[in-house]
């Protein structure tokens, strides 16, 4: 009998349909890797993350150290990107500023995900009055423009980087509630969820084992794209004086000071803006690439 059965040989394995046999994760990774702009985004993000992490060990001057003998100096061998209005090294402040920007981007999105996903799951899965109340609150919060809401919250909470992150996180929460709710509605209607209910699995298990893993890919894509928005929002709040407070470095506050010295020291305004642009572009490219890689219609 055993001889009659087709033996599984190396040839037979290689003759299998490569698309069907590949694990979904490796398919996603392969698709992502072939997405050139996504890889560029990944490189940009990795560069800035590396810069932020390595800031304490890099051979650069103290970002808060003033040098009154080197005020508003143009880029030179001693100060590659020049100095600011009180003689601080622009490159050093830019490198340390990456910490504030990336921290604000990631932490505020984590706040938004931590609040938005559970509310979205509850609204989408339980429906009824719970859904109606959560959905109306979400609509109300979405009606106030993101930045206006963040400015108002930061104003009432008081100016600091932590409060800016909370304000941005709360302002971005409705986005995740709406996204998660929509995803849960579609996943909860699947047969395997019906099956899980039919065999009597408790709701908590259905939510954590069946619903949550299946709604994560779009949440991940949205989170990546929202980090880009959050970084711009933190820079905007710091630019307005509602985020990172001096003398701690932040790209937004560097630009706020730089705008007063456009004539005398234009380099002060150039580099922090380039940094914001590149890191935001990186997250946008990464988010677009992830979306394409995780979209089953694109396979």
């Amino acid at each position: 009998m055993s001889r009659a059965a087709t033996p599984v040989t190396a040839d037979a394995i290689s003759a299998r349909d490569p698309v069907l046999d590949r694990k979904p994760e490796s398919r996603v990774w392969k698709k992502f890797r072939s997405h050139r702009s996504a890889m560029l985004g990944g490189v940009l993000v990795a560069f800035f993350v590396g810069m932020a992490i390595l800031a304490p060990v890099l051979p650069i001057p103290d970002p808060a150290a003033t040098d009154w003998g080197a005020v508003r100096q143009a880029p030179s061998a001693a100060h590659w990107l020049g100095t600011d209005e009180i003689g601080r090294d622009v490159l050093s402040r830019m490198i340390w500023g990456a910490q504030a920007s990336l921290l604000a981007g990631v932490v505020s999105v984590l706040i938004a995900v931590a609040l938005g996903v559970p509310f979205g799951i509850v609204a989408g899965y339980f429906g009824g009055w719970t859904d109606a109340v959560i959905s109306r609150c979400t609509e109300a919060l979405l009606a106030a423009p993101f930045l206006i809401l963040a400015i108002a919250l930061a104003a009432f909470l008081g100016p600091s980087l932590t409060n800016a992150m909370i304000a941005i996180g709360i302002s971005a929460t409705p986005l995740f509630i709406r996204l998660t709710r929509g995803q849960v509605l579609s996943v909860a209607a699947e047969d395997y969820v019906d099956g899980a209910r039919a065999i009597g699995l408790p709701t908590r298990k259905i939510l954590t084992r069946y619903i949550l893993p299946n709604i994560l890919p779009p949440v991940l894509v949205q989170a990546t794209l929202t980090i880009a928005t959050a970084i711009i929002a933190e820079a905007s709040l710091s630019f307005l004086g509602l985020g990172q407070q001096p003398p701690a470095p932040s790209w937004g506050s560097m630009l706020n000071t730089a705008k007063n010295f456009l004539n005398q020291a234009p380099w002060m305004a150039l580099w922090p803006g380039v940094a914001i642009f590149l890191v935001v572009l990186g997250f946008n490219l990464l988010g677009d690439g992830l979306r394409d890689a995780l979209d089953p219609r694109e396979q």
Binding site: A235, A269, I276, F277
Partner: peptide, 12 residues
């Protein structure tokens, strides 16, 4: 991806 306040500063 360009923060509009920076674009404004650059244009000025």
């Amino acid at each position: 991806s360009i923060p509009n306040f920076w674009l404004g500063i650059m244009l000025i």
